[in-house]
Nucleic acid binder design. Structure first.
Lengths: 296, 296
DNA sequence: GTGAAGATCCAGTTTTTCTTAATCTGATAA
DNA sequence: TTATCAGATTAAGAAAAACTGGATCTTCAC
């Protein structure tokens, strides 16, 4: 008897049909059907009366359902207790460079204040490397942007969802954003990171041919160049935090306005889930209006 | 998390070493080691301190051990409750022909009196077919003789252990049994059943060459022929129940006297175990002095 | 009667569990 | 200190279990 089978049984009861339950436990309906059949065979009873649609729990099935809830509750209580044991351990974290320079240090300071016994270790690397390290257990979690194709054993939870702005030098007259991009000199963000891809993809999608004047690989430098009148560019909201940035012309980039996400990637099965969830909350709070709460 | 893993963990604690636990749960030590490692990985903790010999449960391991006991207790309580539900269900039984004609009907009548809600279904077939049907779940249990090579998932529990007798017509002068067999006409029990094999094997072992006069495939008919003076033969104790059978010469067959066993075969994992145990007790009682209690 | 949604069956693929044999390791005796 | 033993672990392959994807069946609503 496996707890996965019991979770499936509870999901069927909660969601009403085998098919819905399959979505919840992330299996195919066929696998759900087979799991329930295996459980029925092991117990030698019918859990469901299948002459109805959807199948109806038998009285015996209800007994097993109650048992399932008790067992899973007991399991979760024990895991929570074990997690409590882990709060005081060393949290192995990773981050891409952009977040490592401001957001994450602030979050770590706050976490340390809340949990004096918590130790942290932070490593800065490329997102692909970070993802592999989390999957392999070398890191507990890492800050990376939205990514295509996270391994199945990992879960990525965004804590920041911020809009992208087209920025122009102080005094530039406001016009339709795409017209500006076609006519004014464009400072391109050139880097092998998801944000650069996101910007370039939307520019292509809108059919805009920019007048490139430069390619720069850090967002902070781009903002500085735009401030000094070199040209226009596209940057995320968070990059515009200096008082002098208020003087820049700022227009929504993309139709609809494009937003980029940054989040925490962690293993789906991890006893550190609780401390990571708290880190996620701290990070979301630090992001202010663009912070995202963790999904259940 | 699987209950089998939890059973293994408890067995290690109970028996002190991984190797002993392996015997108990019927796995190799390697599988035990791997099960514990899988559980440790899922929970993200060390269950054992392996710097000692034998490995010592960690404080966290003790927490998980307590959880394991609770979960398995909850599981067993539910199974017991489900078994209670089964007393009133339909018990699917099978039997070889010889037992179907007298023993089993009596037992079924008694069971029905004790459990008015119990329904039974009885099928008569060859023992190999019956064994396969029990293994496949088509039957809950079947009455078959001692057999070579029961599948591992099945358990056979004898309820009858009766001696074999060499019988001769009334008035035959008592002599050493083997001498009788060598000289008097022998009625051979010819049938593809274990009893026939048992008899022939012992005759060969004793190096006796019989004077066959007939081959008959039912024990009842053999007894009748011997009664009427056709010759001598070998039959089990139970076959000699008629008052006129008291007139037959009866000598122990085999050195030492050969006994044959008949029992119930059932699946080792079955919620019907309780009702089957009661059937077994009734059958054993019906066998009187040759009845065998069920082993734990 | 028809069509749709969902459950089950079937066969192949993937993953997990187990076995076997070799190797490692702690404990103990000489 | 060294040798030996019992037991735990590792590595690789076999076997079993779990899963997927597609076809088929079944219930239910219209």
């Amino acid at each position: 008897m496996d707890t996965r089978q019991l979770k499936t049984l509870i999901a069927i009861d909660t969601h009403g049909t085998f098919a819905h339950a399959a979505d919840v436990v992330r299996l195919t309906p066929s696998a759900v059907s087979q799991q329930i059949q295996a459980l029925e065979q092991e117990l030698g009873i019918q859990l469901f009366d299948r002459s109805a649609r959807p199948p109806k729990l038998t009285p015996q099935g209800l007994q097993v359902l109650e048992m399932a809830k008790d067992i899973l509750r007991r399991e979760e209580d024990t895991k929570a207790a074990l997690r409590g044991d882990q709060i005081s351990g060393t949290l192995m974290l990773g981050s891409v460079r952009s977040s490592a320079l401001n957001l994450l240090p602030q979050a770590i300071v706050q976490m340390r204040q809340q949990y004096p016994a918590l130790k942290t270790s932070l490593r800065v690397s490329l997102s692909a490397t970070l993802i592999a390290d989390v999957a392999a257990g070398r890191l507990d979690a890492a800050v990376v942007a939205e990514h295509v194709g996270f391994p199945q054993a990992l879960r990525w939870s965004p804590f920041l969802r911020e809009p992208l702005w087209l920025i122009a030098p102080p005094g530039t007259r406001a016009r339709e954003p795409m017209a500006l991009m076609r006519t004014l000199p464009y400072v391109r963000f050139r880097s092998a990171v998801p944000l650069a891809n996101l910007i370039d993809t939307e520019i292509s999608r809108l059919g805009v041919v920019t007048q490139d004047i430069a390619e720069i690989d850090t967002i902070g430098a781009i903002v500085t160049c735009v401030r000094q009148g070199l040209g226009i560019s596209v940057v995320p909201h968070k990059a515009l935090q200096e008082p002098e940035d208020l003087n820049l012309l700022r227009l929504p980039f993309g139709r609809p306005q494009i937003k980029r996400q940054i989040g925490l990637v962690e293993r789906t099965v991890s006893p550190r889930e609780e401390i990571i969830a708290r880190l996620h909350a701290v990070l979301a709070e630090l992001c202010g209006e663009h912070g995202l709460p963790r999904r259940p």
